[in-house]
Structures are given as C-alpha cells and as structure tokens.
Write a protein that binds this DNA or RNA. Structure first.
Lengths: 231, 231
DNA sequence: CGATGTGAACAAATTCACAGCA
DNA sequence: TGCTGTGAATTTGTTCACATCG
C-alpha cells in the first residue's frame, strides 16, 4: 500500500506475456523511422489480432489517439515502465556448461535492460576462469554483492537445479528463469519461469504427428503467404 | 477407425503442453522404482493440481484404476504414443553461433526421442567444421537428405531468422522451434513455437517490480517449504 | 471520418465436488 | 474404502461489433 507504483489496474497474465512482444515490434518500427502506428499495423508486426492488441493496451491506459493510432515512442515508454525496464536488472547465470556459456555470451540479454553480471559455478575447474569478460565465481562470492533484485538464470544439469535454486533464494533472489528440465520447488513469493527445450520439441512433434491442419502435403510452393503464426 | 491411435478425441492445447511434463515426472518415478502412482502424487511431482491432472489424462482415455492410481509404465507409454514419440525425430539446428553450438551439444535433446542430425550454417568459415561430432553443412547439402519429418531449430541472429525459416519450409519442414527474437511469417500448416529469452526475463521483471505476492521481504528463511511453482 | 477503447458474446481452461467403480 | 473420471460452476482469455472521440 505504501509504494507509489502500488496496486494499479490488474493486468491479465496473458497480456503481460505479450507486452514484451509489442515492445520489440515497437522498437523495430521506431528503428525504421515510423512514429505513429495503428493497432492494425502493430498487431501485424507482433503476430496478433488488432482487437486483442487494443484490449491488451487498454489495460495500461489510454495511450492511443482515435482516428490516428499510437505514438510509437510514447507507447514504447509506457510498456517499458509497466514491465519495470526503467532500472537495469542484474542477471546471474548459474551453471557454466554449454548452455550457461552460450547464455553468458548471448547479446539478446544485454540489449534489453538485462545485464549479465555474475557467472556462478561450483566446479573448481571452472571457478576463476573468464567467460565473455566475466570471472566465474561461487555462490559464496556472490553473497558479498547485493543479494536482492537479481534474476537468476539456472543452466545447471537437472540434478543440480534444485540446489542452485535453493542457494539463490537463500541469497534473496525472487525471480528465476530455469533452463533445467524438471519442477523446481520454491517458497511463495518466488517466481519461476521455465524454458524447456525437450518439452517444446515434444509439443511440435505432437502437432506434426497429428497433421494439425489436416493439410497434408502441398504447401503452396511459390508466392508470398499471409503472415500466419501459430501460437 | 483402422489405426488404433486414429483421430481420437480433440486434446486441448493446454493439456498437450503439460503432457511432456507428466512424461518426465513419470520417467523420474519409474527410475525410483515406483510403478503405481496416484493423481495426487503425480500432480505433486509435475507441479500441477491433482484435479487438473486427472482432467488432462481423461482426454487420453481411461488409464487409471479407481481406488488405486495409475500404472507408471502404462501411462508413460500412452503419453509417449500421444506425443508421437514412437519413432525418433530428426532435428536440424540452423545457425551455429553461441546458442547453436550449445544446442548441438545439449544432451537434453537426445535423451527424449530427438536426434540432432544436421547442423546448418551459411558462413563459409563455419561450414565444414565439426561440432559435437557433426559436420556443419549448408541448406543446399541438407536438401540431399530426407526433407520431410524434420524439426528445425532456428538459432540464427534475428536478421537471418526469416530467411532461415523460408529455406527450411521450402525443404518441407513443417515444425519450427525459433530461438531468434521476433515474429516469423510462415504459411498455414507450418507450426512455430518460439523461445524468447529476453521476453521471459521481462515477464519476470514485471512480476518482481510489482511484488506480485505483496509479500515483500521475509521469506521464511529456514525450514522446508511446500512446493509452490508459479506457472 | 477513421481508428481507438470497451461492453457484451463467446470460447477455453481451471477448479470444484461428487458419483461410480475397483 | 479410496481413488478415478467427469459434469457443473467458475474464472480467464479472446473475438465481435460499435459507440465514441480526436
């Protein structure tokens, strides 16, 4: 109740999940010199329907102009604020195997308000080495730095994921992006999102097996097709 | 009606997305020597509610025994069948940068019916080199092999993703897992799933900023907490 | 006029609660 | 008795269609 950015309108979870997509589309438009965009155009760029886009944006407030559209810069800013991208976020990557390595070097993080600041591993052979310009440290080392407001990215082998999560949480981490397969048990107040590669492939396999669209074969070889993004 | 696994009941998308999770939990139980499990226990292991689990499984048919539970081996098998994990799937990874590299070496793929068989890149400096025991080839080379029934994993830089998708689709690929940020335009009949790291972090940032659970501070330091997985 | 913003209709997913069966 | 399987109730999300306003 005390904080200024307090309980505003409740924003539906499904909407929150799409805001980053809109933000990216807006950035791309901005880069192309567009500064006003209609819901129709933005929806196209983001791969959603225009009515849905308008409803999503309506949860943030009224930032469009009727008969005109949305100001790209303004809308970007509002969405950024809503997502909490004003201050930069510190990211700690835990587990410096193949995936951790790649994530440490992945520029997609840095480009949008997320700075990878710590690389954690417990393997003595890896601790102390330098990856992508950062020294690999242990949890004990991390403790010395600000413990709060870090997002932890878990890229350990599956067996080590729960322990890694426990240690991160003990240091005050409340947001975890988990690349390790399996379910993490965390206390209330800690949010986990997971990225599970095998699961994604299995979902694709399911649809491919079922010929989801019944449209076996023939895919209109030449020609430009309408944008059609499946979920 | 001829094939046993014929066009059965429609399975809700949300259910499909959870089947791989159940499958993994079942495998873990099996490895621990458990061969019968209740919906309560399996739900716990999978991080869902038992009622939801039962409803999900009911879409596959009646494979449980009232008063007893589910046979672990049987249920694993049924879910595997449903997901199309009987025959192995071939995966082609496109774009051999950091991420492509890591994905090529990632054992999590191989362990579940997905065999990474081709690594694609167009950079002459990379083509021909060997990564994780596979030679990097071009799209032109790929064409010589079976074009159908491949799942393409796009790990290119964002600018190259659409072209990569177009080329893969031209070769007959109908399932794409896209790691590049941005929206892919694909014809009907092609399914795209995307994994967007920056988006995931932004969603976490949103919730952290809002102190989703209002439960600022105090996280019950010691003690074992109930399992509480947020989405 | 033309595009936004939104109530109302619809659809999908989740949760409840309990009948029914091993 | 104890669990599954499932209708019914509820919640959440999407689509429609149009009044509204710059």
């Amino acid at each position: 109740m005390s904080t200024a950015s307090a309980a505003r309108r409740e924003i539906p979870e499904a909407t929150v999940a799409r805001l980053p997509v809109y933000l990216r589309a807006l950035r791309a438009l901005s880069a192309r010199g567009v500064d006003v965009v209609s819901s129709e155009e933005l929806a196209e760029a983001a791969g959603v329907r225009s009515a849905g886009l308008r409803k999503d944006l309506s949860h943030l407030g009224s930032y469009g102009v009727r008969g005109v559209g949305y100001d790209v810069a303004r809308l970007s800013d509002e969405i950024s604020r809503e997502l909490g991208l004003h201050h930069d976020w510190s990211v700690a990557i835990i587990g410096m195997g193949n995936l951790g390595h790649a994530l440490a070097a992945y520029s997609g993080f840095a480009t949008r308000g997320f700075q990878v600041r710590w690389l954690i591993d417990e393997d003595p052979a890896i601790v102390g080495t330098e990856i992508a310009g950062l020294k690999v440290i242990t949890f004990a080392d991390l403790e010395k730095h600000e413990p709060d407001s870090i997002i932890a990215v878990i890229a350990t082998p599956p067996e080590a994921a729960q322990t890694a999560a426990d240690q991160a949480i003990a240091l005050g981490v409340r947001s975890i992006l988990n690349f390790a397969p399996g379910v993490l048990a965390v206390p209330p107040g800690v949010e986990v999102r997971k990225v599970d590669l095998a699961t994604e492939l299995q979902i694709l396999a399911f649809h491919e097996q079922r010929g989801k669209y019944e449209q076996r074969g023939e895919l209109e070889p030449g020609g430009k097709y309408e944008q059609e993004v499946v979920r």
